[in-house]
Design a protein around this nucleic acid. Sequence first.
DNA 1: CTTGCATCTGACAACGTTGTCCAGGTTCTA
DNA 2: TAGAACCTGGACAACGTTGTCAGATGCAAG
Lengths: 348, 348
Amino acid sequence: MAETASRPERPEPRYGNRPTMKDVAARAGVGLKTVSRVVNGEPGVTPDTERRVQEAIDALGFRRNDSARVLRKGRTASIGLVLEDLADPFYGPLSRAVEEVARAHGALLINGSSAEDPEREQELVLALCARRVDGLVVIPAGDDHRYLEPEIAAGVATVFVDRPAGKIDADVVLSDSFGGARDGVAHLIAHGHRRIGFIGDQPRIHTAIERLRGYRAAMEDAGIPVEEEWMSLGPTDPDRVGQATETMLGGPEPVTAIFAGNNRVTVTVVRVLAGLTRPVALVGFDDIELADLLKPGVTVVAQDAAQLGRTAAERLFRQLDGASDAPERIELPTRLIKRGSGELPPAG
Amino acid sequence: MAETASRPERPEPRYGNRPTMKDVAARAGVGLKTVSRVVNGEPGVTPDTERRVQEAIDALGFRRNDSARVLRKGRTASIGLVLEDLADPFYGPLSRAVEEVARAHGALLINGSSAEDPEREQELVLALCARRVDGLVVIPAGDDHRYLEPEIAAGVATVFVDRPAGKIDADVVLSDSFGGARDGVAHLIAHGHRRIGFIGDQPRIHTAIERLRGYRAAMEDAGIPVEEEWMSLGPTDPDRVGQATETMLGGPEPVTAIFAGNNRVTVTVVRVLAGLTRPVALVGFDDIELADLLKPGVTVVAQDAAQLGRTAAERLFRQLDGASDAPERIELPTRLIKRGSGELPPAG
DNA sequence: CTTGCATCTGACAACGTTGTCCAGGTTCTA
DNA sequence: TAGAACCTGGACAACGTTGTCAGATGCAAG
């Protein structure tokens, strides 16, 4: 009666009131720390006491609150993955690979899609940092990552994948976009093509630039002057890419072959080409499912998304284990897979 | 000198020592709570004070520790997603849809793959509960989810997707596997087939059973007795499925059409059929990319993975917003997409 | 110049866990 | 049988934040 509602109380009537170690301790008739010991498998508890505690845990449905644990211990055993779009088939295996490595290290994976928007990337990354993830694997959308400096200084391990970080020095794992594109285009040239189109992603994106550079290098190596209208960079939605494809294939001097800058582009180009009678050669960057069953099969420059993810995650955990190597740039090779579309001779 | 290491100290020399609100307060020459107010945009702070605090925040690179916040507030603003395999193209869009809804509600997504292993599912789910996620979206691998009872009782919102929960009563969002399969098989029958094979996932999996049931129903509706060797359930790896396909197509009375129980199966069957001269009709459950460009195009019973995820996530947040409807079973319709392979007449 | 009121600020406890340290009890040895 | 060594269990503080409440400050009115 005398003591009323002046004691600071939990803000909301919390959803369910979960039992705490204190509750377990009270029920088992032991001290708080003893419960902690049992829960964490620490030594120094008699079998009999342990049994009593375990019974109380089961009876109450107790589950340790990792938020509190994290607060006390300073490590969250979780890592963040920021990618472009979880729904893109390229990122599925990558994401899965990161997850597997995390799992092997007892960590959970928190992930989010930036939708290729630099602001959203930053927002996500900072939200993850606020959660105090131990480390970050980032497929950057933006080109300025100085906002990460305080985080990295504070000990957040960070590895970039697929594209390098902007304006900061950090680990990065990527595929050899330049070399892959150059090889792919050289392959087309070797099959007699001279008028070759390049359709890629937005020039803001590092891989798009690198692949275009590879295209130019191959053309230059072969002594073929490149026409402006053979190159098209921009969003990879079907409309834009479809239009670009048709433009290149129209006109008085159409291209006889196309190099597609990524999986999304390749799919759309294949669709357009399927509607033509005249054969047009095609090599795409990134492998795509069922590419072997199309007629002709789609020749691609394949990169190993899972390997990218695995490598990045492993490097991340090496950082977390205390390795303090200088930031490194790891480049994985690509592989040309011939399936038919890239071996078509020039028509017309 | 006099005071030595008797004060309880943080266990490890923490990775980076991040500044706390206390540090910011000291630097700005204000009280702790004032910093909290600024950080959270609460009213009652003079512009001048706010500026000083903001400067200190920027100077120190302070970032609020959400772990501590969570501990105090009781909500984590994060939800867990447990699916079978992030790398499976079916789950990418689903996962992305869940993420979008979570984002709209200001929550982060933690996800993990169960690899179709019930134990791993449970392990993951409980780890997520220990993190005190506010809610769970689960694509179940196991068939007994009683282990979730204490969690649900404690207020963890839970929605199952793609397959119902086992032995507990919970919300579930799924596609009409039975109806979809029945329609698909009926479609084959309508095109004159009578000897139709069914290749599906392991019988442990709910959707596999439902689709088989749909197959049987369609056959029965048409008065066609089903032979044992026309049905094959099991793992969906290429070896097993390839073998099953070849078995059905061999022998004296081979099937003239195949119904494939999911996207993985369809892809493998397409590969096998591509190696044959004789045409075999095919309808697959789940749409697959490029299915329209194959010759013939692959007829499928499509389900909308993104819609599944969206619906589930929305239902989850409705639970979190306090709705206490009885657990519901939401079934989304499927759609038959005719592309050629399902319209082939029986050969032989 | 005092009073009253509104506004701003800070001290403090609490969230649930774990590390430290000490008390009490048991077992073994001399 | 006393003392030492050991083992088990528990009290307590601290992690970084936020809600409560009371104190401080400033200003207008009496």
